[in-house]
Nucleic acid binder design. Sequence first.
DNA 1: CGGCAGTTTGATGTTACTCAATTTAAGTGG
DNA 2: CCACTTAAATTGAGTAACATCAAACTGCCG
Lengths: 238, 238
Amino acid sequence: MKSGWPCVTCPNRTSGFCGALLGKPVEDASSDEQPNWQHYRGARAGEQVMVRNQPCERVFVLCNGWAFRFFQLSNGRRQILNFVLPGDLVSAVTVFEERPHFSAQALTEVRLSGFLRSEVQTRFAMNPGFSATLAKSCVNTINDADEFITALGQRSADERIAYLFLHLMRRIAARNVVRDQRYRVPLRQQHIADAVGLTPVHVSRVLSQFRDRGLIEFSGGILHVRDVPELERIGTLN
Amino acid sequence: MKSGWPCVTCPNRTSGFCGALLGKPVEDASSDEQPNWQHYRGARAGEQVMVRNQPCERVFVLCNGWAFRFFQLSNGRRQILNFVLPGDLVSAVTVFEERPHFSAQALTEVRLSGFLRSEVQTRFAMNPGFSATLAKSCVNTINDADEFITALGQRSADERIAYLFLHLMRRIAARNVVRDQRYRVPLRQQHIADAVGLTPVHVSRVLSQFRDRGLIEFSGGILHVRDVPELERIGTLN
DNA sequence: CGGCAGTTTGATGTTACTCAATTTAAGTGG
DNA sequence: CCACTTAAATTGAGTAACATCAAACTGCCG
């Protein structure tokens, strides 16, 4: 059920999507024999990698680093829609739509692998294994969105933040070995606030309350979970 | 961009999905020559038509009436994830997953058209036009979810309710002729509350405030919009 | 050492929730 | 058509959760 085979386009990374996208390992990726329908692109922390409504002919997979998709509102607020982790398609929607309805920004320094949409669509039509992988990506996106909607609609500040951490923990654990319940989570409190619909001030209060309760510690980009069962009790829906 | 061709499986209805699903009109749908991979099913208002985690071998398209997908929480609350209108696939996810992660309930009396998943998947693999239609359905679902997340995360009670009405108005207008800005919206205030994450009491207050302002009137399942521009000013994101 | 971004803390304000009572609307059976 | 029943909507008062504003503090980097 979990996707996790090695990603041929991004050395030392695993991905459920990336591998299927290319089909076979690229033997000599260093030379410029590399086909023009695939190319790499880097971005620094904070840099915008995709702009709402701006046409983009490529479909991107994140090779390393973290990014996020978001909506910027006219009143200055922004909603983070989800976080993109290594191996993830930035958005499955970009396979079908030229103009994204969202923006995306690098959270850390990132490396992206971009594929020409026309080529991806051809493979989508031809290769059943590829279609299945893409379908799975869509299904995951929709399932995650449904849970997220529920968290925002029905849960308190504590619960939303606990939910976000649990969600990220699961995704990180699917990619990396986690030791001692320490997770590298390169977010500022502002990002948490923008994701779960709270102010940074309130996020700060909730986090220090969690710390005082011996639940978690979050600073310097490291999430250290001291009481997993209790965090799950608070953050688990249904 | 809009999907709206006549739906061959459900007489007197239009749908972007239903028609493509079957490919050709069923000549004699009344006889029992009807293939067993497609059958109809009815449900009364309030009846549960899909239960979370319960395996279901068919993929359903709503022929008429309204339904909604939701999560039931252990604390008694529920989050309505979205409303299903005639012609909609109840959820694109059901094409790929046997056990839905959500439940679904009829809002009015409904009629559903169910297709064997195995058959749908075969067509998905074979027919490019069908894959494209399904992909479009996924894309719409994801785009709607992103907007909905933003509404829940960043907007006030007034704005969320205005947003919901605008969203429903657009979807209704894509299916039916609307006269005099009157829309048939078969929701109770409780449903609105469960969708936008408010209490029914507060929904009532917001609605009567809207009424006093001459914005909209909503009762008896009819939404009458008296000031469209103002409603859009309040409910439009970004 | 100074500057800056990010976090913490306190005081106060607002929004939406809760609880409880009341009114309205929608059925139902005589 | 009218009493009776039940579900839905409205209203008011009190409260809790989170926002807002502003100031102080921390750690990091030049």
